[in-house]
């Protein structure tokens, strides 16, 4: 869900490129990191609201968050963290392709395999071995497991076994670490691309 919302972020940037606002920003002395951070902050706020609504609906429909209010806040936080790397990815695609369709196709092409080849819909144990292998390097697995662990208050991560912490934290902490690293890495790539971004390709 965070993923789907994050996909559209790059589309917004492409719109800006097409209507000239992006060029207007490029020609201003604005720090390019600020350009990315500002865009991401807007996206993050939207995603946080969406996650909160879904959690609220879940509770109304009878789901129970074992870790209580703190856990709910934690799940929202994981949702945000989870969206960050995909916002960065989709914005990087936007700067590279400068084309709305390519950005949507590129982002969707990644979105669906990432979702299905993870622990999002089925327990990994029930899936063929090759999917388990893919899921192990799939960041979606870490995000989903971390959120699920908070929901159920126990260690549900099966791709890697961490036992250094207590219960659910064995899933949450590695998940957060993976997502954070990914968000920072892709964020840096996007900022670099934005810094070098010019109006056209030049020799």
């Amino acid at each position: 869900m965070s993923l789907a919302a994050a996909v559209t972020s790059g589309v917004g940037l492409v719109n800006d490129i097409e209507n000239g606002m992006f060029e207007k920003v490029l020609v201003s002395p604005m720090n390019r990191t600020a350009v990315f951070v500002g865009k991401t902050a807007a996206e993050v706020f939207r995603i946080a609201v969406q996650v909160a609504i879904i959690l609220g609906l879940g509770v109304v429909l009878g789901a129970e968050i074992a870790t209580g209010l703190v856990g709910a806040a934690g799940i929202v936080a994981i949702g945000i963290l989870f969206s960050l790397w995909f916002v960065a990815l989709s914005n990087a695609l936007a700067v590279l392709t400068r084309d709305q369709e390519s950005t949507i196709i590129g982002a969707n092409l990644l979105q669906f395999p990432l979702l299905f080849l993870s622990s999002a819909f089925l327990p990994l144990a029930a899936l063929p071995e090759w999917i388990q292998t893919v899921a192990m390097v799939n960041p979606v697995t870490y995000g989903v497991d971390a959120a699920r662990a908070l929901m159920l208050d126990r260690d549900v991560m099966t791709v890697i076994e961490v036992t250094a912490f207590d219960g659910a934290l064995n899933s949450v902490l590695p998940g957060v670490a993976v997502l954070l690293a990914l968000a920072l890495g892709l964020g840096a790539v996007t900022v670099t691309l934005l810094t070098r971004a010019t109006s056209s390709d030049v020799r």
């Binding site: 209507n19 000239g20 606002m21 060029e23 207007k24 920003v25 020609v27 201003s28 002395p29 604005m30």
Partner: peptide
């Protein structure tokens, strides 16, 4: 810099467009 293609944000008011530019600069 005023580009060949008009580049203002159509969803913002005139005042907000100028305010955004103030912030950018």
């Amino acid at each position: 810099y005023m580009a060949q293609e008009t580049s203002i944000d159509p969803e913002l008011t005139a005042e907000e467009n100028v305010r955004f530019a103030c912030e950018a600069y």
